[in-house]
Amino acid sequence: MGINFSLMAVLTLVLVAFAGVKFMGLQMFFGVVAPYAAMALFFTGVIWRVLKWAESPVPFRIPTTAGQQKSLPWIKSNGLDNPSTKAGVIGRMALEILLFRSLFRNTKLEYREGPRIAYEWEKWLWLASLLFHYSFLVVFVRHLRFFTEPIPFFVQGLETVDSLFQVGLPTLYLSDLAFIAAVTYLFIRRIIIPQVKYISLPADYFPLMLIFTIGATGIIMRYVTKVDVISIKQLTMGLVTFHPVIPQGIGELFFVHVFLVSILFAYFPFSKLMHAPGVFLSPTRNMPNDSRIVRHVNPWNYPVPVHTYAEYEDHFRDKMIEAGLPVEKE
């Protein structure tokens, strides 16, 4: 179900952009209006979502993370998996954000002969997502050559490394290969593992297919059909400098590519893609486990009217003495 729906959605978007440019001459819409609208939606949407998350107080530390928490001096604690200091938390967050540490801990349950249950290391998902995210980052940074003039040194350097093997002309980017391989793996994994397929929704398939199609259109433009990159850079620089122009002679495929990217950005704040800012706000990762060192007061505690024993005695002292009850203060 989810697969068909997502496939139809992506194909519709491709066809809409293609037909809009080819038959209706809507270059202005797909090349300028859609990217601007998508960017506006992306930034307002992401900021709105993050601020909405920030409305929830997260006062208490979650000590049940992997690793021994800091305890008695003779018990060896795990400073990175269960840190009690700020530096440790920064280390844990860096491992999580840069190396996907919790995904690295992924295990697979297996029934072996016996029957006997075994939990096996399952590293392929971690490897594929690491490959996917980093190749996507490289592709993203490389695209800065269309959005900056002069082009910063790190974009040039990255490009040199990415086309290191100088295969063909235009040179084959290693990140293109890694990107397509990783997305394909993540998609195949989703449909061949029954349990994963069972829990997969259109919201899982759609971004995968959309990202795959973005990659595919980009790769086709670069290596197969060719586009006039000078005109394209004039268009993209027009967007960046807020002097939008639509140069003549840009193929439909470019507008399909840009429209799909616009859809991805516009879809971002409303989807699972929000895990990008979300990972920074993971409560099990971004707080030091110092519950035994610092007192954390619940911020939604309201003042409770209390009547202490001292006040009670002040109130009823005469009557208590009269009745022969013991009092603390005479």
């Binding site: 900021i47 993050v50 601020l51 800065l144 900056t148 003039e149 910063p152 620089m237 960046v240 400098t241």
Partner: peptide, 21 residues
């Protein structure tokens, strides 16, 4: 955090500062 993210992601705009390339 939001500010840093927005500034990094809008980096080409700061570099161009609206000047035609």
């Amino acid at each position: 955090g939001i500010l840093i993210g927005v500034i990094i992601l809008t980096f080409p705009l700061w570099l161009a500062r609206g000047k035609a390339a």
